[in-house]
């Protein structure tokens, strides 16, 4: 399996957990460098899995933004507690 394919697969696995972001940016920068050097047939081979990475990424952004929404809407006091 090419390094590019391995990287995409590993990132797909990492994105399954939306809260695990340590070093994530760096890993995507690495992926970018692989993509820049890749041949068209290599890119073709990872296209479907890269689409899955995009889907997971947008799902995770949605989850994180969802967690922030109550805070931004109602203020910090109501964020963690059910009001009494």
């Amino acid at each position: 399996m090419s390094l590019l394919k391995e990287k995409v697969r590993a990132l797909k696995e990492r994105l399954l957990d939306p809260f695990s972001v340590d070093g994530l940016e760096k890993e995507f920068e690495e992926l970018l460098s692989y993509v820049q050097k890749a041949e068209p047939d290599e890119l073709l081979a990872i296209r479907d899995e890269f689409e899955e990475v995009k889907t997971l990424l947008s799902r995770n952004l949605e989850i994180i933004s969802g967690g922030l929404k109550p805070l931004l809407r109602e203020g910090q006091d109501s964020f963690f507690s059910r009001r009494v």
């Binding site: 939306p18 809260f19 972001v21 994530l24 940016e25 995507f28 920068e29 992926l31 970018l32 993509v35 820049q36 890749a38 068209p40 890119l43 073709l44 296209r47 890269f50 990475v53 995009k54 990424l57 995770n60 952004l61 994180i64 933004s65 967690g67 922030l68 805070l71």
Partner: peptide, 27 residues
């Protein structure tokens, strides 16, 4: 912590967008 996670995702989204454009252009 949530803001940190969100910022990371926003930065990653930019890189992904660049990768996406590269793939589209090459293919």
């Amino acid at each position: 912590e949530i803001m940190k996670v969100r910022r990371t995702y926003e930065a990653v989204a930019k890189i992904v967008s660049t990768i996406d454009e590269l793939i589209q252009t090459t293919l």
